[in-house]
Every structure is written in structure tokens, then in C-alpha cells.
Design a protein around this nucleic acid. Structure first.
Length: 846
DNA sequence: TTGCTAACTTAGAAAGCCCTCC
DNA sequence: GGAGGGCTTTCTAAGTTAGCAA
């Protein structure tokens, strides 16, 4: 069932989301009103089956939660320290009783306040050990239940109230069904990736000292740099290489043969090292210079402003639009929006109900009153001629003469030269996206409730320019003016505007090769390296918290365990009806996991199934530690599928906690850390110095793939995948035949040589031998290529390579095994990672 | 503490470009 | 030389995080 069949009434969906930690605008607006209503509802909640207002409901949940918290807090205060430990006298007695009867350390640990921290840790280990090595299942479970019972105390009451009400909600089932459909049949749903944690490397034999000071990590760098918190020193100004711009074209020329060589799988030929080296020498090595003081992003910034989308060109008269079979000459505005739809006719989007509904609604707003009057049914609109016209145009573009193509290319190059660069602190830097997004129809991913809405044309009057006071402010297009000119050197953007779909701000920023982006990237990996030093401590810490008396701490620790073990994203709360229903760790709902005490011969298996960022499905079956499993059971107790799994947790709470554990630590850092450490470890495991270059590259790709799988970087299999695999197989078969022939020839020449014993035949044998070797190598390369491609069918390597893998690991690997860096990073990637390529030696350790 | 949002990173899809092969 | 196909680049959506204000 396709995702568009999901309900498209976002209100309905919003109505039945029960989440006591959700915060919404609506809530705020209605806060005072709701508060009053709340009390009344409490009285009548048992018959309350027809609530229509989600914000009301959420607010109620929130208040109940608060009340429950208050109750607990009150109790805590009353009972002093004992309460802090979550244990009432009676319970304590029970506990002593249990100990008498030979309770396991697990029980003791629950009451860990009695133990010294060191003992605690030991206990934790022992416990894990014991659990692994055959404590009786039944006993364990019983224990877990008791524990859960106790720990829920003081919270359960509120929870029950909450759920008593929830059970009444008749629409919930509907929502559940829809969610299921969404998970099972959304457009972007991919095959199960089926990985377990097997690829993960969790324990580094490194010292586990927790180095939390950012200053320390700087020592590990090749060159020292000014620390974030250090006093600002005026940056050394390095004169810009004036040739650089002119050289760009030249460079591209230089790179062409390089590219071609590196792409040519048949040849392992050297790249043009000399030219490459020269190129790099002339690059500005910002990483050898001092950084700006904290917060200051630049001292001088000058640019030419953005490039606007070309104005709309009306359709030629012979291209007709029909409504209900009759030709309709649309007004210019309506026609423009109609062309947006027509250009997407081949796309699945235009078949989706939500898309069509949103489009038609917004299109109507652009129509004249007359058009609006009679065009009331999108189904009666015939865009086919328009669609064909655009297809023909696109074909014509492909068929253009070389000269015409060159003209366009030159014009693009001219635009790039004018608008594609800025001057930042005396250096000419490339801008990433200097073109303003053209108008069109919004293409949200997954089941986005706003797909199909009209993305309006951005005008200069919508644009905020950011540059330095002493720079030449870009001039607005004739007859227009900028919305605002700002001089804010605490931000990195050059241009911004607010888009109309989500009301979010869009920016024009610098290219990843720029100093400003590179520095940030470098810093990101340094933070991840700092995490490496304290990750053991943090892991021990969260393991301890699995036994905490505080529900919040338990949830936090289990969530952190997932983030660490499974590289899940933090999972911010999202506004319902505004975006696709996707989740991350903190926003997981009960319906997203299934608990299996035993599965496929493994104990305590958690089955995850949810849509993550970009509505990419995350499916994984993971054996977890018993304590995690029991905690999950506890978190799910008395909850409905659509309730938050971690109802006491959000990303803000989690990140604040992480900040206390290590300066600069956030949930995201775990992804970077685990990705990089996995790459390093996998490279060590997979690379053999005896291998030839293609085999080593296959090992690299496999290591990269392990990370991509860990991070769940999926892609839709290329449309031409099957065909290209078949072609490759044909090539392999042909090569095998060729090899057979060559071997036969070698054999016969050898026989010949035995008889004749002359120089000529001996030489012939030699050449036949070489031919066989050459073909064997070619065959091996093809086979490696096939393996690589097959393994890569649904995995996207680029995202992890670009965003999660410390490039110095790759650089060091290349240096160590004599692999040209061009085999791993293409030109753009080399530009982005210039800092790493320059500074990492073959012995670099992440 | 909560809500809001600016600023930035991360993400997959689509478009564009260029190489290989016939 | 042009068709096919793979790699690169562009595009922009969708996340995360920090910081501010009430």
C-alpha cells in the first residue's frame, strides 16, 4: 500500500498523538485556557472518547506528568535521603529480606548507594558476567519484575491515570493502522538491512582516561591552534594567491587527465602527482594559521549577492492546457504553477493524494477569480501537452551542438566567477550555493504532509545580505532592493531568506573546502577523538544508570546505550502535521520496538522498526543486555503503541547530561566517534599488505560499507543496477574465456619450447606467460568490481565518507599502503579534506 | 523550565558531466 | 560520434544543537 493512501488529514493525526513531553505552538497559545479546562476533564476523563483537540490532550498529559512528578518530588522531600534513593522503609526491609535469601548482586546494585563507587563498577561487571553465564532465566525475570515494580512506584499512579484515559480514544487504532501502513509501504521503505551489531567495535584498548579539556586535544594536532576559549589574537593575514582564480580553469584542465586515470579501472596508472602537488602547494593552508577568537567567524566579508532564478517564460501558444477536455488559456501566474506540476508528471509524487491536494489548493490561490470559478477538479486538468513540451525541451538541450553547449558552459562559468566566490579575510573562497532556489512544488520526503505545496519565487525583497561594513555591499537587481543588509560576523552565512513551506530560514554559505567549514570539520573530529578517551567511563556511567532509582536517569541511560551501540540519531521532537512522521532515539515510540526474550537462539532481542531521517527505514534486531531489556519492558508498561518510549527524556535533557560528562559532547558525537573508530578498526582487520591495489581498495570500501551500514545510510538501488551487473558479468565471462585461451596457448608454447629449445620459442613462452598474468589480473579486477558493486547495491558510502569518517584515517591508510589518495577521494573530496591530507602521516591514530 | 528558532550539519535524489565502448 | 552508464556535482530537505526570552 502506498504511503499516499495514508490519511492526509494532518489534524486527525495530530489529535491522537499522546506524548507528555511534546511541546507545540498550539499548546502555548491555548495554555491558560487549557489549564482551566484540564481540571474539568480530569473529572470526566473516563467517558472521554471523542477528544478532538490534540493540543488539549497533550497539554493534559503534560500536566498529569507534572503532577505525577510533583507527587514524587513531594514524597522524596518527605522521606529525605531514603526517598532520594527511591526506597521506602518497607521496601528496604523487603530488600534486606531478599538479601538474606540469597539475592543476586543485581538486587544489591539496585541499592547501590550503599556501595562504594568502585565496588559498584565491579558489581556491574560481575553481574554482566553472571548474566551471561547462565543465571536461571526464571529467577532473573522474577527479579526484574520486582525491581521494575519498585522503581515504578510513585510514577505508576500518574501513568495509570494517563492510560485510563487513553484507552478510550477510539481514533488511536486508526492512527496505529496508518502508522503501520507507513512503515510497511512508504515510498522510501527499503529492504531490511538486517545488520546486527557484529560490525561494531566498541572496545578500544586505549587508555581510558577521560580528557575533557579541549585544550589537551589540541596537543594531538600536528600544529597547535588557538583554542576556542583563548584570548583573541588578530589572525595573521596571508596574502591571497592572486593566480588562484585564473588557475581554476587551468586546474580543471590539469585534473581532467587525472580524473580519467583514476576512473579507469583497467589501468592502475599513476596520477599526475607533480601537477597535483603543485596544485596543493598553492592552496592556502589555513590549518597552519591561528583561528579567530570564539564566536567571531570572519573580520572581512565581501560578495556579490545571490543569483536569482530566471524569470518565468510563458508557454508558446501551441502548447495547450485542457480542463475537462476543453482548451483553457491560463493566466500567467496560474500557468507558471501549472508548469511546475507538468514538469513532475512522470514522478510518483503527482499520483499521491496529499501532493495533489496541496498542489491544487495552492494553485487555486494563483488562479484568477474566473479560473478558480470553473476549475474545481484537479482530475479534470490535462497537463500532458505541457509535460511533453518540457520533455522535448530537455531532449533538445541534450541534442544541442557542441558550440551551443559550450556557450552555456561559458555563461555558467562567468556566473560562477562573479557570484560563486567571496572574499573572506583576504582569501577568495568558493561559495557553495550561490543560486537562490527556484520556485516549484515542495518535494518533502516520505509521507510529508506538505508535499505539493507551492514554493514561492524568492525576490530581492526577501533577501538578507550579510557582509562586512567596510565591504562593497552587493547591489540588488535593478528596480529592487534587499530586505536587509546585515553585518554580523558571528555567523557564517552570506545570504538568507525565509522559505514559505515550513517558515524556515535558508542560507547561502561557503563551500566545504573553505576555511570556515574546514575548521569546523576538523574540530568535529577532534571532539570525537576526545570522546574516545572517555568513552569507557561514559559507558560505565550509563550502565550504572540502568539501575538508577530515577526513571529519567534510566531512560536517559538506555537511550544513550542505543545511541552509542546503534549509532542512532538524537531524535528531536517534531511538530505533528508539519513534517513526515519520523523519529530518532529520544522520540522512539512504543510501537517502534518489539521485545523478544528469545529470538533466533539469542536472548533479549530488541527489534527496531521505524522511519528515521528522510523517512529511511531503520530495521534491526539487536541482542541487548538483560538490564536494558528489562528496562525497556518497564518503559513500555501500561503504554499504548503511540506513546513515547522515553517519556521522561528529550534531546535537550540528554545533551545537557552529555555536556556534564565531557565538554562539547552531544548525541551526534557518538555517531562520528563510532563511525570513525569502526573505519579505523575495520581497515586494520581487512587490509593485508600482500594484497594488490584493487584488493586493498575493496577492503577500504568494505570498511566504509561497515560504517554506512552502522549509520543506516541507504540508497534506492540504481535504476540500471540489474542491467549493469549483467553487463559486468558478461565482461567477466568473456574475460574467463580469454583466460582459458591464453592458458591453452601458453601450454602449447611450452610444449613447443621443450621440443625446439631455441631462443625464439623461449621468448614466446615468456610473452604467453605475461599475457596470462595480465588477463588474470584483469579478471580479478572485474570480479572485485562486481563484488563491490553488488555489496553496494543499497548502501550509500558517500554520506559517511563525507560527514562521519575522520579523513586522517583514510589518508594515513593510503600512505601506509601506498594507495594514491585519488583512489579514495575525488577532486572535490580532496579539496574538502585538504587539511587532513596535509597533516596526517601514515601512523595517524584516530 | 519551556518554547522557539537561528544556525549549522547531514542526507538522498536528481541532474549534469564525462568516459568507455561499439 | 553517439549511446549508455557511472561518477560527480548540485540541490535542497531534514536533521541537530545552542542560545535566548518569557
Amino acid at each position: 500500500m502506498s504511503g499516499d493512501q495514508l490519511h492526509n488529514d494532518s489534524q486527525i493525526e495530530a489529535d491522537f498523538r499522546v506524548n507528555d513531553s511534546h511541546k507545540h505552538k498550539k499548546d502555548k497559545e491555548h495554555r491558560h485556557k487549557e489549564h482551566k479546562k484540564d481540571k474539568d476533564r480530569e473529572k470526566t476523563k473516563h467517558n472521554n472518547s471523542e477528544h478532538k483537540d490534540s493540543s488539549e490532550k497533550k497539554h493534559r498529559e503534560k500536566d498529569k506528568h507534572k503532577e505525577s512528578e510533583k507527587r514524587r518530588d513531594g514524597e522524596k522531600e518527605k522521606h529525605g535521603e531514603k526517598e532520594k534513593l527511591g526506597e521506602k522503609p518497607a521496601e528496604k526491609e523487603k530488600h534486606v529480606e531478599k538479601e538474606k535469601h540469597g539475592e543476586k548482586p543485581a538486587e544489591k546494585e539496585k541499592h547501590g548507594e550503599k556501595e562504594k563507587p568502585g565496588e559498584k563498577e565491579k558489581h556491574g561487571e560481575k553481574q554482566a558476567e553472571k548474566e551471561k553465564h547462565g543465571e536461571k532465566q526464571a529467577e532473573k525475570e522474577k527479579q526484574g519484575e520486582k525491581q521494575a515494580e519498585k522503581e515504578k512506584h510513585g510514577e505508576k499512579h500518574g501513568e495509570k491515570e494517563k492510560h485510563g484515559e487513553k484507552h478510550k480514544d477510539k481514533h488511536r487504532e486508526k492512527r496505529k493502522e496508518e502508522k503501520n501502513k507507513s512503515l510497511g509501504g512508504s515510498v522510501k521503505v527499503k529492504k531490511e538491512n538486517g545488520f546486527s551489531g557484529a560490525l561494531r567495535i566498541k572496545d578500544e584498548p586505549e587508555d581510558n582516561s577521560c580528557n575533557i579539556l579541549p585544550k589537551e586535544h589540541a596537543k594531538t594536532l600536528k600544529r597547535s591552534r588557538v583554542e576556542e576559549d583563548s584570548e583573541f589574537k588578530p589572525k595573521k593575514i596571508k596574502t591571497e594567491d592572486v593566480k588562484k582564480t585564473k588557475k581554476r580553469k587551468q586546474e580543471e584542465e590539469d585534473v581532467k587527465p587525472k580524473k580519467s586515470k583514476s576512473r579507469n579501472r583497467g589501468h592502475e596508472g599513476d596520477v599526475k602527482k607533480k601537477k597535483g602537488k603543485k596544485e596543493e602547494e598553492e592552496k592556502w593552508k589555513w590549518w597552519e594559521e591561528e583561528r579567530h577568537a570564539d564566536g567571531v567567524k570572519w573580520k572581512f566579508l565581501e560578495h556579490k549577492g545571490p543569483v536569482f532564478a530566471p524569470p518565468y517564460e510563458p508557454l508558446p501558444d501551441n502548447v495547450k492546457f485542457y480542463y475537462d477536455g476543453k482548451v483553457v488559456k491560463l493566466s500567467p501566474k496560474a500557468e507558471e504553477v501549472a508548469t511546475f506540476f507538468a514538469k513532475m508528471l512522470d514522478h510518483e509524487y503527482t499520483t499521491k493524494d496529499i501532493f495533489r491536494k496541496n498542489f491544487f489548493k495552492d494553485w487555486k490561490k494563483e488562479m484568477s477569480a474566473e479560473e478558480r470559478g470553473f476549475m474545481t477538479n484537479l482530475g479534470k486538468c490535462d497537463f500532458n501537452e505541457l509535460g511533453q513540451y518540457f520533455k522535448a525541451q530537455s531532449e533538445a538541450r541534450k541534442q544541442m551542438t557542441k558550440q551551443d553547449k559550450l556557450k552555456i558552459k561559458e555563461e555558467n562559468e562567468r556566473l560562477l566567477q562573479v557570484y560563486g566566490f567571496c572574499v573572506m579575510d583576504n582569501h577568495k573562497e568558493r561559495i557553495a550555493n550561490f543560486r537562490i532556489e527556484p520556485p516549484g512544488l515542495f518535494r518533502g520526503r516520505g509521507n510529508h504532509p506538505k508535499m505539493g505545496k507551492l514554493k514561492r519565487r524568492i525576490m530581492p525583497e526577501n533577501i538578507i545580505i550579510n557582509c562586512s561594513k567596510d565591504s562593497k555591499v552587493p547591489t540588488a537587481p535593478a528596480g529592487h532592493k534587499w530586505k536587509e543588509v546585515r553585518h554580523d560576523n558571528k555567523v557564517t552565512w552570506l545570504v538568507s531568506w525565509t522559505e514559505n513551506i515550513q517558515g524556515s530560514i535558508k542560507y547561502i554559505m561557503l563551500n566545504p573546502s573553505s576555511r570556515i567549514k574546514g575548521e569546523k570539520d576538523w574540530q568535529k573530529y577532534e571532539i570525537a577523538r576526545r570522546l574516545k578517551k572517555c568513552v569507557d567511563k561514559i559507558r560505565n556511567n550509563y550502565r550504572e544508570d540502568w539501575k538508577s532509582k530515577e526513571m529519567k536517569a534510566r531512560q536517559r541511560s538506555v537511550a544513550l546505550y542505543f545511541i552509542d551501540k546503534l549509532a542512532l540519531r538524537a531524535g528531536n521532537e517534531k511538530e505533528e502535521g508539519e513534517t513526515a512522521d519520523t523519529v530518532g532515539c529520544c522520540s522512539l515510540r512504543v510501537e517502534h520496538i518489539k521485545l523478544h526474550p528469545e529470538m533466533d537462539g539469542l536472548e533479549f532481542v530488541v527489534e527496531f522498526d521505524f522511519l528515521g531521517k528522510d523517512s529511511i527505514r531503520y530495521y534491526n534486531k539487536v541482542p541487548v543486555e538483560k538490564r536494558v531489556f528489562k528496562n525497556l519492558q518497564l518503559f513500555m508498561e501500561n503504554k499504548q503503541p503511540e506513546d513515547d518510549l522515553f517519556d521522561r527524556l528529550n534531546t535537550s535533557i540528554l545533551n545537557k547530561h552529555l555536556q556534564d560528562l565531557m565538554e562539547g559532547l552531544t548525541a551526534k558525537v557518538f555517531r562520528t566517534y563510532n563511525a570513525s573508530i569502526t573505519l579505523q578498526q575495520q581497515l586494520k582487520e581487512l587490509t593485508s599488505s600482500d594484497d594488490n591495489v584493487p584488493a586493498k581498495i575493496l577492503s577500504y570500501n568494505r570498511a566504509n560499507r561497515a560504517v554506512a551500514i552502522l549509520c543506516n545510510h541507504q540508497r534506492a538501488p540504481p535504476k540500471t543496477f540489474e542491467k549493469s551487473m549483467m553487463n559486468l558479468q558478461t565482461k567477466i565471462d568473456a574475460k574467463k574465456d580469454q583466460l582459458g585461451d591464453a592458458r591453452r596457448e601458453l601450454k602449447s608454447s611450452k610444449a613447443d619450447a621443450k621440443v625446439r629449445r631455441d631462443e625464439r620459442t623461449r621468448k614466446l613462452v615468456e610473452s604467453k606467460k605475461k599475457a596470462v598474468e595480465r588477463i588474470e589480473e584483469q579478471l580479478m579486477k572485474l570480479e572485485v568490481q562486481a563484488t563491490d558493486r553488488e555489496e553496494n547495491k543499497q548502501i550509500a558510502l558517500g554520506t559517511s565518507k563525507l560527514n562521519y569518517l575522520d579523513p586522517r584515517i583514510s589518508v594515513a591508510w593510503c600512505k601506509k599502503y601506498g594507495i594514491p589518495i585519488e583512489k579514495i577521494y575525488n577532486k572535490t573530496q580532496r579539496e574538502k579534506f585538504a587539511w587532513a591530507i596535509d597533516m596526517a602521516e601514515d601512523d595517524y591514530e584516530f
